[in-house]
Design a binder for these strands. Structure first.
Lengths: 119, 119
DNA sequence: CTGTTAATTAACATACTTGTTAACTACAGC
DNA sequence: GCTGTAGTTAACAAGTATGTTAATTAACAG
């Protein structure tokens, strides 16, 4: 998983329309018009959102006559989950006390460092 | 957790510099200059990245003489983790067969729907 | 008060995002 | 071929992001 891919994935997920599209695709495949239906937005706008999702690898598209059925591709979501897991200890209740303790240690250390290079 | 907050969090995380800053803060508090040191970028650029992280609630800042120590705030990361968890079944190996099955069901259904409204 | 360090704000350039409408491609059915 | 539906691409406007350098604020040290 490259950093670039994380960039593209996070950027794609930063838009509520695109997250809604993914939520819809979690129910199963859908065509562009079906995906567009719940939104006020024009069809070209949806088409571009889909292109963003596709470039991020979050969806793939088939061909079936004049329809382009979209389906969810969860690979990049797994990358996100892995990335965020590294921070779990910072919010997990059972680790709060340890986090506070480490933070305290760090504060003392940092303060010391700072005193060392004070002008 | 509002949709807007998810927007801001995902957008903040879409930048590799900002993710690197969070990774550094996972080690403990740091000043702006300490955070800027690893990057080629100018200090004002880092300052603006920190402002983005702060507005997203991903960091908070104290005051200690002329330093502004930054520390990680993991609340929004927990939101991300919760959000992405909803998609776990799409990548989790033990669910692959079920996903395929659901997908198959959906394909048949969608095809039927389409046939219904075919011109 | 003066000089130095830490950090932010201002002003600006450039590029990307996201929406619009209008024009276009592709396929289906007669 | 003609017509209607599905979807994309083009051209454009408006807003947002991200970097730069220069100027500014704030606090310490003498």
């Amino acid at each position: 998983m490259t950093e670039d891919r994380l960039d593209a994935t996070f950027a794609s997920l930063a838009d509520p329309t695109r997250r809604a599209i993914l939520a819809r695709l979690a129910q199963g495949e859908a065509t562009v018009n079906e995906l567009a239906e719940p939104f006020e937005m024009s069809l070209p706008a949806i088409s571009r959102h889909l292109k963003v999702l596709e470039r991020a690898g979050l969806i793939s598209r088939g061909r079936e006559a004049q329809w382009r059925p979209c389906r969810l591709e969860a690979g990049p979501l797994k990358d996100i989950a892995n990335w965020v897991e590294h921070y779990r200890r910072f919010w997990d209740a059972s680790f709060d006390r340890m986090a506070d303790y480490l933070k305290e240690l760090q504060t003392v250390k940092t303060k010391g460092d700072r005193d060392d290079r004070k002008n």
